[in-house]
Design a protein around this nucleic acid. Sequence first.
DNA 1: TATGAATGAGAATTCATTCAT
DNA 2: TATGAATGAATTCTCATTCAT
Lengths: 220, 220, 220, 220
Amino acid sequence: MTRATRSGSAAPHDERLRDAGRSQATILAAARDEFAEHGLGGARMERIATRAALNKRLIYYYFEDKERLFQAVLEQSYRDIRTAEQALHLEALPPADALRRLVEFTWGYYLAHPEFLTLLNSANLHKGRHLPESRTASELTSPLVEMLAQILERGRRGGQFRGGVDPVQLYISIAGLAYFYLSNNHTLSTIFGRDLMTPKARQERLSHIADVILGYVLRG
Amino acid sequence: MTRATRSGSAAPHDERLRDAGRSQATILAAARDEFAEHGLGGARMERIATRAALNKRLIYYYFEDKERLFQAVLEQSYRDIRTAEQALHLEALPPADALRRLVEFTWGYYLAHPEFLTLLNSANLHKGRHLPESRTASELTSPLVEMLAQILERGRRGGQFRGGVDPVQLYISIAGLAYFYLSNNHTLSTIFGRDLMTPKARQERLSHIADVILGYVLRG
Amino acid sequence: MTRATRSGSAAPHDERLRDAGRSQATILAAARDEFAEHGLGGARMERIATRAALNKRLIYYYFEDKERLFQAVLEQSYRDIRTAEQALHLEALPPADALRRLVEFTWGYYLAHPEFLTLLNSANLHKGRHLPESRTASELTSPLVEMLAQILERGRRGGQFRGGVDPVQLYISIAGLAYFYLSNNHTLSTIFGRDLMTPKARQERLSHIADVILGYVLRG
Amino acid sequence: MTRATRSGSAAPHDERLRDAGRSQATILAAARDEFAEHGLGGARMERIATRAALNKRLIYYYFEDKERLFQAVLEQSYRDIRTAEQALHLEALPPADALRRLVEFTWGYYLAHPEFLTLLNSANLHKGRHLPESRTASELTSPLVEMLAQILERGRRGGQFRGGVDPVQLYISIAGLAYFYLSNNHTLSTIFGRDLMTPKARQERLSHIADVILGYVLRG
DNA sequence: TATGAATGAGAATTCATTCAT
DNA sequence: TATGAATGAATTCTCATTCAT
């Protein structure tokens, strides 16, 4: 975040005004929605201000400019998903269950946070120019890969999983199987002439993904 | 296309008629690159004109406005990939080979046409608003799904493939496994701290995808 | 000038519209007045457009941005004064008369073109950043210095003028004696408690300058 | 000054009172530099605050607004140069020496205080609107003119100087000969293709000015 | 078919200034 | 005395689009 706040000790006199931390968070949330809906190029600072019910000028006061605001939004999104991942505790589950749980989490998170998909798309459209300069590597690098490696290893030792599975490839595959379906559902629904977002269709997709992933990992 | 050229039926000896077609094609190609690079919101009509080395006014003459130009670009892209798919002739191959071939084609096409991925992203960011109104269903609906269904059926009858595989789900999975990796490679490379686009990494990804898909379809 | 015009051969259908050359000239004149009145920082693009009775956008179309517009104005001003100097023909006059004539010209030109003084001030405030990059050295470098050198030499040979006078120093002195009085007349009038711009005061200043310059050059 | 400090009469043992005066002086110095660098229109209150390492709000507390701040800066500048002039004691010198000394002082002061030139330019660009309303006539009106009148009279009586020299004209000429050269040195250096600010060039200019002024005043 | 000139409606950003403490 | 938060009104510049030929 551009301007650190010191609001911690301040007495909360007013519900919304003059609380730097809250203002920044409000702007960030509004910006996230706007960027998710319209992309970086299509987003409007004016609309972000309106969404946040704050003065447009304040956005510049805290975030410098549109690009840096986008970057702040991205960073926040990464932080959010990392936080959600923390709560999974896959290490406690049997390997196959852990894998299934991961698939379900990924699918569920993308479903619940469609803006995350769009933000990633935007970030990649701009060739990752807005990625935090690996400064906060820990913020970006998912600890899930490490976790996944352990699950795979546990499964291999237990004889259920095949060996030689690259956890990074697998992680990307899990994400990709969910991401593509959700991110491109409009196009796909049109192409295939069927609504891919009905509850039934979504349930089927989740089953399919789990089957694909487990079918690949499980020892024939 | 907004203003159809009469070149289809016209004898190809008229210089001017051929120029009209060429101008449109030039604009379309320039627009495709611009949209792919900057998205719909970030694309600039001015730059498209410059890329095409043609007058800006001409774009409006042929394509009405930016939105319709984007739509024309999308349609052209669909047409292109459909054309490429025609040449596959998967029906002549044994089921497993056909599937592998489809995976390779998909991967190769996305690699060779990165703009296709970005265009799809843009189309979906705008909720498919620019999809041709199923008017040209044939243009959109991939005949590959039909083909894929036949491959799966052949494999099932031959005893190699498991039954109950939804060709649409499978098609989306093949695409998703390739698409996500390529479309988001900047983000992913940063997150995982390794360059995912080296020749070796690309080769490994292709292998992985084929393994995943075949691992899922093949009878244990 | 940013965008060359080709209006020479065009038929003058309309008195003002669609004549690139005229539009540019109009903008340039309006900008000159605005910059002269308010300086570079205080000038308003909006006002320039209004002064020119042309669309604001057109200014950017022809001159790119404010800075470049200012530069174009400066270049035009230099061109103008050089043109006026051409008409002096000092070489035909006896040395002392030529010098007196030059003093009168300088004084008269500054009086008639107060904007020239202000523009120079602005250019120097910005450390000459807007000076044409000596590309058009001929445009900037006054041929008057050469002329002045000849006058001084003629005078010296004729025994009227002392030797060893640097024409550049002399030229700067002539200009400075006029410039400072006119450019700072508000401040000076206040400080000295007398209006320095009455016709009488102006006449006296011109006499004084001529006396100073000739007093310096003439052999005691 | 807008909000007079009471520090003049206050005992200097109160830390806070002394700080108030210091803050004002700091702001004034910062503002002077900013105005000198960018002119009135180009100056930024934000930058002034940053330069002063003080809160922006404080500037308004002490100086009301930008215009009045500029005026305060101007007044301070006048006060400074008047103070410097006090120390000259020209009355003690022989007329020609006194005149030479005045030329040297003027040149040296402008060289050492380039911001003074720019501030004067700005003040005049705005038509002297910021000049203190002659309220502090004593602050503005240089006592030097009176002094100069005495020098000229002494010289005339002594037979060295010619008569009929207007001290105001002479004062303006001395200032103008120095001012124009220094204030416009960027433009002039470019026009004449030689660096006018080398130590040698500066020395030559000073000699030239002294020669011109004395050449004018001294009896042939 | 093709093009340079022109424009109105924004859009990002800036700036002096005020609020609340 | 001092400061961070907040704002309304510009201000520069952009953009898709139309005009006139």
